[in-house]
Write a protein that binds this DNA or RNA. Structure first.
Lengths: 344, 344
DNA sequence: CTGTTAGCGCTTTCAA
DNA sequence: TTGAAAGCGCTAACAG
């Protein structure tokens, strides 16, 4: 008997969804067979599969995410929390590229991206606790470790741009990378170096400072000749910090910025002060942001493959989701790359 | 009888979720009463509600999003699709601010943000069709109108930065705004103006061009004196376009960029050519991006309240979700604001 | 290879 | 004011 052409109640927005039962009826099989066919279960015969496929397509059937999620215990979503202090966090170009990498991998696995910029850490716990996402990627360092442990007890978790014992993470070789960059400066004959950072509470920046100091020590330079200037973590921090550096009156022929944004601020200040880089003062940064290494600033920097960080994080998370038995703690370090620029 | 302290099977990641039934047992009521209590149903007595609340809290209960979604027919998610041509779309600072505004409103309503950067429009149809989101916000102009109609038939939909008959949208006063900006230039004595755009296929840019022409005509200036230079929509398009403008040999004392990015490119080119702005050539843009109006460029521009666009879009979408009867077609125009800068 | 059926965890009539 | 029970749409045993 033919499927009765009942008039679908076409509501203002959204006509009635077609369920698996109607596909079953239309193709003359049981719902379980429809389910198997649509999920590529090898048990089902080719003929049946095709018949079901055709019916599903004809009816415009799409499985309900909620129903499937309930039955499978999986939402098909992955959550990403960005824990930057500024708003909107989406403006951060570093994280934007990481996000792009994450999305690339998720898309290939047909997973969806749930984003939260995380004001209150507790929401994150709810998020995973409600099963809205099958796993979580936390980008940045702003979230308390205790909160992270709480989350990890509930769901697969991967940290990005932050390394913490007991957690799976993807980060950069902050210390070694910054040592390398500083060495480049030293090899070019610079002797009076300064390190400029705008957020000493950030562990990545602290590691970079250590790298800077490693290189200073290895070169036998006087550590005192390398003042650390910490400025407020607001827009224009690098500018102000560099001004203070200059105000000390010490001789400075090289400035190492904890990141590109800070370094660009320094360049701006130097230019305003009539100093020419790199002749007078060479400047280097860290991150490899497009705007900083571009034609305007030509910043020399340690380039970070941000998209790759995102891809790796997503892969690690998917592994953790697929393999719930494995214990966390894999820490992947994406190495940085020296990118000389006009600023050096 | 006390709730038996069964040992929860603490799996590697995620101990067993506590369901509404355990809360019911612990508080000695039926599951339906738990549901009502937790959903602030006025029918339930204060005493019971409190008892249930306490039990739920003690057990760390959180409702399953999937189960609730299935029962209620609502996912609690809102999807945002960004349809920019470049990758990763998250890098676009305009959209980043819009996203921030959207998130702000969603967060207040405890809704979650599902993001897709949309390679293939058909995925979007699936997204709403699977009920993963209760509504959709599409930012940008890259998606075919037919696809949009298809989506609108399935789910509440709001367009951002694009106006289309029959769709609810939040956009800017491109034409009037650009006319205003151009007038500012003319009032400052500029007579030889050029319009610079990098993507003629974008309707927003076309509208801005019209606004430019409106002002030119109103001032009785010769339209021929206003060459339109369209350049490839890639990084550095403004630079190249401005170079071509200069190469024409025509006198030019003012350049109107279709957006800030293009305008900054023009400034860069002018500087490289040894021209000083605004003395030689004044430049204005459109969008009001922070980097363009900041200390480096000091671009004069029509500022767009991007966060507000996001907030309004979210509000309109929530209205549409709450009021499925209402027909779409509300078109909200966020007016732009003249922001003079050093470039003029 | 396919059909029957029992849930997944919650909401929501319908009774009491 | 509360309880019992019927789904929501799908998956996954378990039979056949």
């Amino acid at each position: 008997l033919a499927p009765e052409p009942e008039t679908l109640p076409e509501s203002p927005a959204g006509r009635k969804r077609v369920s698996i039962r109607e596909v079953a009826r239309a193709s003359g099989v049981a719902v379980s067979t429809v389910s198997r066919s649509l999920n590529d279960d090898p048990e089902v015969s080719e003929a049946t599969r095709e018949k079901v496929r055709a019916a599903a397509l004809a009816l415009g059937y799409r499985p309900s995410a909620a129903a499937r999620g309930l039955a499978r215990g999986r939402s098909g979503n992955v959550a990403v929390a960005i824990t930057a202090p500024h708003t909107p966090v989406f403006l951060d170009p570093f994280y934007a590229e990481v996000l792009g990498g994450i999305e690339e991998v998720l898309e290939a696995r047909d997973l969806h991206l749930l984003i939260t910029s995380l004001k209150r850490g507790h929401d994150l716990v709810s998020l995973v606790n409600e099963g809205r996402a099958d796993g979580l990627i936390v980008i940045g360092c702003e979230l308390e470790e205790e909160r992270l442990r709480e989350i990890q007890a509930l769901s697969p978790l991967v940290l990005v741009d932050r390394e913490l014992p007991g957690f799976t993470s993807v980060s950069t070789d902050n210390r070694a990378g910054m040592a390398r960059a500083t060495r480049e400066l030293i090899e070019r004959g610079r002797r009076h170096l300064a390190f400029l950072t705008d957020d000493v509470s950030n562990p990545n920046f602290r590691a970079r400072l250590e790298g800077f100091q490693d290189a200073i020590a290895a070169a036998g330079l006087d550590a005192l000749a390398a003042p650390v200037q910490s400025v407020s973590p607001q827009e224009g921090g690098g500018d102000e910090g560099a001004r203070r550096l200059l105000a000390t009156g010490r001789p400075i022929d090289g400035i190492v910025g904890a990141n590109d944004t800070t370094a660009v601020g320094a360049i701006r200040t130097l230019r305003a002060a009539g100093l020419r880089g790199p002749d007078d003062v060479a400047v280097i940064g860290f991150d490899g942001l497009a705007y900083a290494t571009g034609p305007d600033w030509g910043l020399a920097t340690m380039w970070v493959d941000k998209a790759r960080m995102g891809r790796e994080a997503a892969r690690l998370l998917l592994e953790a989701i697929d393999e719930p038995a494995a214990s966390p703690g894999r820490s992947l370090v994406v190495t940085t790359e020296w990118r000389p620029g006009r600023s050096i």
